[in-house]
């Protein structure tokens, strides 16, 4: 098996294990960083160079920083895990895993019957992705929809996060140093 596959798959699984089972939420967040970076490496081993770079930029750089900010702003207790919860949950997760692998086995046989051809050597994918994103018979409509959605998310997140401060000002409590510009 490919050496790089083993390295990145091990990183992903190890990070996932740390995230799922560590007591401290900050350690769990860094476990998630490891898992996401491992997934980016798996993309690279599959020849998806652009997607791997995007994964590092967006997930490892962006989402994780957001998560750490939320951890610092909101967590008081470390929400300790009780062993009894694991005992209750273990059969559910085990059954779920078995069903997933059974479904995988079905897909696996279908692909084998279809007869896959050997993959050609990996090509740079950035130009192909760019052309597909902007061609009308490609992914132009989903691309524009994602753009609109991101604008909505930007406005919505700011609105949701600011509503509490306005209520504080109505109740006469000091709302910190921020004061202004509310429409």
């Amino acid at each position: 098996m490919d050496f790089m596959f083993i390295v990145f798959a091990g990183l992903a699984v190890l990070g996932g294990l740390v995230m799922a089972f560590h007591q401290s939420i900050v350690h769990s967040a860094f476990g998630l960083v490891g898992a996401l970076f491992g997934v980016a490496g798996l993309y690279w081993t599959m020849g998806a160079d652009f997607l791997g770079g995007l994964q590092v930029l967006l997930y490892v750089g962006g989402v994780t920083v957001l998560l750490l900010f939320a951890v610092m702003l909101s967590t008081r207790d470390s929400t300790r895990l009780a062993l009894s919860r694991y005992v209750l949950v273990a059969p559910v997760v085990g059954l779920l895993g078995m069903f997933i692998f059974q479904a995988y086995r079905g897909v696996y046989q279908v692909v084998q019957v279809l007869g896959v051809q050997g993959p050609e050597a990996p090509q740079p994918t950035t130009q192909q992705i760019g052309e597909l994103l902007l061609s009308p018979d490609g992914y132009l409509v989903p691309f524009e929809l994602v753009a609109v959605l991101l604008l909505l998310v930007l406005i919505g997140a700011v609105t949701i996060a600011r509503r509490g401060q306005e209520q504080d000002e109505d109740q006469g409590q000091p709302a910190g140093t921020e004061s202004g510009g509310t429409p």
């Binding site: 798959a9 699984v13 996932g16 995230m19 799922a20 997760v93 779920l96 997933i100 692998f101």
Partner: peptide
């Protein structure tokens, strides 16, 4: 092998 890694991450 990629599917197995994906399944493990999903279950975690």
């Amino acid at each position: 092998s990629y599917m197995v890694v994906s399944g493990i991450l999903f279950v975690l």
